[in-house]
Nucleic acid binder design. Structure first.
Lengths: 122, 122
DNA sequence: CTGATATATGAACATCTATTCAGATATTCA
DNA sequence: TGAATATCTGAATAGATGTTCATATATCAG
């Protein structure tokens, strides 16, 4: 990564300042990946359903309207990225939100989306 | 939407409770769309760069390393979904985070990603 | 063990998406 | 006006992604 940039129209100090506050590559990649997981309506519904407490796979399928196979695939992704954790009880697997951060993100976003929009901003 | 579900293994009261706390379809779709926008590393970098204040397109291209065309496409999406707002000054377009909610989401996620991970959770 | 149930998994496929490239638009300056 | 600069836009394309279907695994009841 060089300090020189190819373009000619830059405000150098603003660019330098922005580069310094940019999180590490790992944090950026991890954050993007987590946001991406939350960015699918099916997966998001799964997580929203889990805000009230743990549910098993077929419960989640019933709540969200997706197939159990699709739900299972989604949960695997979510678990691999620590968005949910799982617990087996007999034949059932119970899934829950992994931690409070996830729930905070969900609540913040849904609250934001529920607010009336301001026309005069662009 | 019927109250009856096709599967036989459900815990009916847990499912009913989860369905009641599920946000409206609009809120779910809007939230997913916003999360999806944040879920691309290129777009996420743009937003992170804007935490320190407004920048023009070629500044953003320089900070993130993406082409100006790609940046412009990304900004259009972000603006259409109210993640950023724009302001023209002469030949330059200055972009800024649309509101504090966006910044909160970014900060919460990057802070979460920066934390050390707990091995004993699954 | 055998059958039934709940979940997980792999492959295939159709769909979506981000980038690039070429060219259009808008603004400034001479 | 015409040249130069900054940004935008549409089309095309290569790659990623979510779902389905079929099948595998795991647990329990008898």
């Amino acid at each position: 990564m060089t300090d020189r940039c190819e373009v000619r129209c830059v405000h150098p100090q603003a660019v330098a300042a922005a580069q310094q506050t940019m999180p590490s590559e790992d944090v950026v990649a991890g954050s993007a990946e987590m946001f991406r997981l939350l960015g699918d309506p099916g997966r998001l519904r799964l997580l929203l359903a889990l805000r009230g407490g743990e549910l098993c796979v077929c419960d989640l399928a019933a709540v969200t309207g997706a197939s159990e196979s699709s739900v299972s695939h989604s949960l695997r992704l979510l678990r691999a990225n620590r968005a949910v954790r799982s617990r087996r009880e007999g034949r059932n697997m119970y899934y829950a939100l992994h931690d409070g951060h996830i729930e905070q993100l969900l609540d913040m976003m849904t609250a934001h989306m529920g607010e009336p929009r301001d026309h005069f901003s662009d």
